[in-house]
Design a protein around this nucleic acid. Sequence first.
DNA 1: AAGTCTGAGACGACCGGTCATATTTGACCT
DNA 2: AGGTCAAATATGACCGGTCGTCTCAGACTT
Lengths: 192, 192
Amino acid sequence: MARTDVRERLLTVGLEALHKRGFNATGVQDITDAAKVPKGSFYNHFESKDALGVEVVQHYAAKGAERRLPLMEGSGPPLARLRAYFKSLNQLGPATGFSRGCLLGNFGTELPGQSPAIRAVLEAAFDDWAKAIAQVIREAQKAGDVSKDLSAETLANFLLNAWEGAVMRSKVEKDAAALDAFLSVTFNKILT
Amino acid sequence: MARTDVRERLLTVGLEALHKRGFNATGVQDITDAAKVPKGSFYNHFESKDALGVEVVQHYAAKGAERRLPLMEGSGPPLARLRAYFKSLNQLGPATGFSRGCLLGNFGTELPGQSPAIRAVLEAAFDDWAKAIAQVIREAQKAGDVSKDLSAETLANFLLNAWEGAVMRSKVEKDAAALDAFLSVTFNKILT
DNA sequence: AAGTCTGAGACGACCGGTCATATTTGACCT
DNA sequence: AGGTCAAATATGACCGGTCGTCTCAGACTT
């Protein structure tokens, strides 16, 4: 197997494993087993488990940025795009029995105290995400669809955090009630 | 040391340690060291680490129920009580450098897939909490301070989840911005 | 003496990371 | 094209720990 293939595979499989089980509950051996790569090879590609965690966050964030292209660049009204965006995010829960949550939220809960490097990339990822949502909300405010009482940044950050909380709750309850409530309150009350 | 004292101490200290570092990143030895109890004694009091986790959740939830007595039984207007309640919750973050988060949210993120018993008590704890908040919102709706477009239950669950998400984000950012945004949007937009 | 409780240390498994050895690579030579 | 060999890379056994749990000799109680 080519060197770059092994590294990619470790990153991809590592992301999957860490997302499924959490950072501390997943061992390097679990990741290398799943990737069908000898354990000793791991350290040829990543300096440490922590270093993998950093790249996993960055990779997941990059995928998230791709996922929100229709939101950022679509042609419909901003609120409709935003609703479609959160609806599509909400489909991810049921697909895995509400077992995964959001990797950023999971790591944001588990790791800030233990890994400064991971905390830093998490912070960057959340901030970028919130900025993207704020941009769409700002459009909606300009269009007169959302009142300007609260800034687009405040609303975007609030909603992003609210969504993460809803995802966590859907993990606990193993159902979509929290995600549904999020959509309902967001689009029937907050973004009005 | 008396047997019930040892057990109480393990529970109290265990709660503290698990809250500080997370479930999987805290060992039984860490807990028994902190409690100044011999490690072998742990299993005289708790069947397993998981069993301790279950009791920690129940204990924390009971403390949470006490904390919200002024909310439930206070004499001022419901919205004022609710605001004071969340304000007091929000003081917990800065007190520890935003390092702890909420134990229920932390466990809700880390453990549903790994411990069915802990997931079950988490579910119960969140549901009780949401019911309590819903009761106050219902009062506010009756008083005409909050519109009845959305049910008290929907609003309460949404806000509880939103607060958990804000707490997680305050851990990542190590500041109070998310908690402040929560108060702002909740009382200036949602509960109106 | 008999019954009950305690806890030091053992158990088997797992942890992140290391490193001597094995294998592959690619430059060079014929 | 085939062979050589130093350098680069990969590998898996090993390292020194930690993990949650259990055991049974000894302590304690009645």
